[in-house]
């Protein structure tokens, strides 16, 4: 068993300084309901593509308010297979790349912290050159409050995915994810948490006018392990943090999406979920109940 653990240094210092007990994830995750979420290999499908009717037939229903999941949640595997093979919107197919990943998401909270657990079967390696040699796997989730980011409520992470961002064909290597009219001051941003397997490090950032990977105050820790071919990553996050952290309140729901960079991938070569909702003691696709 390969086990990796990383506790955010800042959070540890905070916990020690304040004398509070370290946050504890549910002792028995088996009793926490799991939501099945498939993540597809998205190819080159930035927000500009999904909103363009001449390219994406669903642009019309999207404009009318439908969610991506509303049309596609039952065919994620098929979409992934079509794209990863180069059949559609993938100009540089990677032979052997997984078409999709089936993950389970569990959520709970204790009034102070939100606990998110992601589990999935490690896909077979493609054998292609490693894009991120340091990190075989990375997993990130994003939260958004109040539908302030355009299409966040319908498309999950896609609101931050643009055709001119790095790794997109012909894009600037230094251009990160961003959101339209992104502004922390105006609340137009995604809260972003990521865990990287090789570095064994948790990142607490956000995506506004650009992506910032560090500086957040909500993420307490992220722990990941690979056991018998199954990854399990648990994030512990304070319900409220600081700038760039979405403040989570019981009774509310938040826009939620996540992505896995499998097979030492970077940028767009990840597997990504459609948009879902996370409820804190509230009805949603994924519900975090108080333990």
């Amino acid at each position: 068993m390969k086990k990796m653990m990383m506790t955010g240094v800042a959070s540890a210092v905070f916990a020690l300084a304040t004398g509070t007990a370290m946050a504890a994830a549910p002792a028995n995750w088996g009793s926490v309901p799991a939501t099945d979420v498939d993540l597809l290999y998205p190819g080159v499908s930035p927000i500009e593509w999904i909103t363009k009717g001449t390219e994406h037939g669903g642009a019309r229903v999207l404009r009318r308010g439908e969610t991506c999941a509303g049309c596609h949640s039952e065919e994620i595997g098929d979409m992934g297979r079509l794209i990863v093979s180069g059949g559609k919107i993938e100009p540089t197919p990677i032979p052997g790349k997984a078409a999709f990943i089936s993950a389970k998401v569990q959520a709970a909270h204790d009034g102070d912290n939100l606990y998110l657990r992601f589990t999935w079967q490690q896909p077979e390696a493609s054998g292609a050159p490693k894009m991120d040699a340091d990190n075989p796997v990375k997993i990130a989730y994003m939260l958004e409050a109040g539908d302030k980011v355009e299409l966040a409520g319908q498309s999950g992470c896609w609101g931050s995915c643009h055709g001119d961002a790095r790794t997109m064909p012909g894009a600037d290597d230094n251009k990160t994810k961003y959101v339209k009219d992104g502004s922390l001051a105006n609340g137009v941003f995604y809260d972003l948490n990521q865990w990287r397997s090789g570095e064994n490090k948790a990142y607490d950032g956000y995506v506004a006018d650009q992506r910032v990977m560090e500086g957040g105050q909500a993420l307490v820790s992220a722990e990941g392990q690979l056991e018998n071919g199954t990854w399990s990553v648990v994030f512990t996050r304070k319900l409220t943090g600081g700038e760039g952290d979405v403040a989570l309140e019981p009774g509310n729901t938040y826009n939620f999406g996540f992505a896995i960079h499998d097979d030492s991938a970077i940028g767009r070569y990840h597997h990504v979920s459609l948009g879902y909702t996370l409820g804190i003691d509230a009805d949603a696709d994924i519900v975090a109940k108080k333990q």
Partner: peptide, 9 residues
């Protein structure tokens, strides 16, 4: 699912 949504709309 996709066709159903589109046609209902």
């Amino acid at each position: 699912q996709r066709g159903r949504k589109q046609h209902e709309m």
